[in-house]
Nucleic acid binder design. Structure first.
Lengths: 257, 257
DNA sequence: CGATGGCGTGTACGTCGTATCGATCGAGAT
DNA sequence: ATCTCGATCGATACGACGTACACGCCATCG
């Protein structure tokens, strides 16, 4: 689907492909090189934060780095690896909750901070492909690792602990993604969160509602009071999930605070 | 972010923008026109199913329809509306569970069928933007509507019912997305699900594991027995969520089978 | 001091989305 | 029966993108 080739790299002529992260970990061979994977990733994240993912162009990025369009290709095999680098970089910002907080609070914080990370870097939602959405970057793995640490010693088998961690993280990313897309959709049509929002998702929604196919949904839009409170919605589902975990733990014959 | 303009369309020269879905609902003005939104969407879905989302090109699509590259633009304002059409079309395939099954079983089926839909049309994962990921297409709204119907009359307020429905749907899409991306990643490096899989996520994983930063994760990979059983993982998290809902319903003073 | 090899440059190709304008043809009015 | 008009589709073209490729530069090491 999306071909991955290896970037040229320092160190000689092996034949085995070396993963991006191994290449990244290699120290800069000289202090005077203009580019490093870090510099590239930092610049790219800055652009994406400021102008969205569409602004991320190999040419634009090169301009930002004061360098020729093709220069970055020595450190990155292509745009998808660049995106991987960006994803990993921002996940380094996430502060991992202490295990001592107990599994529930720690998992809760993990989810909430995941949400905040997405909101701080909305372009993350648009990166669905590759290793970006899985956990296969160092800093994302560290987050999963902490999730497992938090559940360690509670009597869960490996499969269950991992599935719980993934469920919570997936829920958090999914809900935060919804929130971001809604927000962008609103900005795109420049509504404030004022009257139009309160009257449903006008205007594209109004037609669909007028068809009468969605009476309950329509009633919800009119009835609900916390419509614009995305955090409330986020936390509600999160608590459902954590309640389920708590029940599972109790069933396993353990409890915890 | 992604500009939306209105496609030219039959019927004269109004000035108010008309939503895609309203335009779609308009009957074909003549029986002899070559193109309709439906024909376009069907062809596009066929291509995407067979060759992935990257194969979807306005030119390719036109060729598939036996028509000039720009022809589809009379029915669709741009590629993003085409994607909206595709998203909506495939969601029409999802069979809605009967309300009589009871909220838990119905919600469970909704989640499982959502998952199957994604697996049948893996390109859905790659469409993050626009109304695609929110529920703002007719067939997706119908799914949400059924979710609300299933929870109706159980004493939940509008906000809670909607949040629950969305939580379940978001969880389902997120987990199915993980599954698809993992599957694609595996195909990309042509492992079977054989030895490499069983030994972790080799080869790009092996380097990261060898750093020793992820002892628990590493142990999980070695210990777990249902690693490749994505459905099991899916259902585990789903049950957690539904357990949480059940607790909330019990707290609201209701029960149900 | 000469050679080596990594680093960044310059140029160019193929493909994409889509703006614009012109040709065509069926239906409704006369 | 003819005219006319607008809906429909075709042809051409433009700018931007990702990236392949081959070349100059320069620090380093023998």
């Amino acid at each position: 689907m999306s071909p991955r080739k290896e970037a040229a790299r320092p160190g000689g002529a092996e034949e085995r492909p070396v993963s991006l992260w191994e290449r990244v970990a290699r120290p800069a061979p000289a202090a005077r090189v203009a580019l490093t994977p870090e510099r590239i990733a930092v610049a790219a994240v800055a652009v994406a934060d400021a102008e969205g993912l569409d602004a991320i162009t190999m040419r634009r990025l090169a301009a930002e780095l004061g360098v020729a369009p093709m220069a970055a290709y020595r450190y990155v095999s292509g745009k998808s690896e660049l995106l991987d680098l960006m994803v990993d970089l921002v996940h380094g910002e996430l502060e991992l909750p202490e295990v001592e907080l107990g599994w529930r609070e720690a998992l809760r914080l993990l989810a909430l901070r995941n949400r905040e990370l997405l909101l701080d870097h909305p372009w993350l939602v648009r990166i669905a492909g590759g290793e970006g959405a899985l956990a296969l970057t160092p800093n994302r793995l560290a987050i999963t690792e902490r999730g497992l640490a938090v559940l360690d010693g509670l009597g869960l088998d490996a499969d269950t602990a991992l599935a719980i961690t993934r469920s919570v993280a997936t829920y958090a990313r999914g809900m935060a993604g919804n929130e971001i897309l809604l927000r962008e959709l609103m900005a795109e049509q420049n509504w404030g969160s004022g009257e139009e929002l309160r009257s449903g998702l006008a205007p594209q929604m109004t037609y669909l509602m007028s068809t009468g196919r969605y009476p309950l949904y329509n009633r919800s839009l009119l009835t609900q009071r916390r419509k614009d409170d995305a955090l409330w919605q986020f936390e509600l589902g999160l608590e459902l999930l954590l309640d389920g975990v708590a029940a599972r733990l109790a069933g396993a014959g353990f409890q915890d605070g």
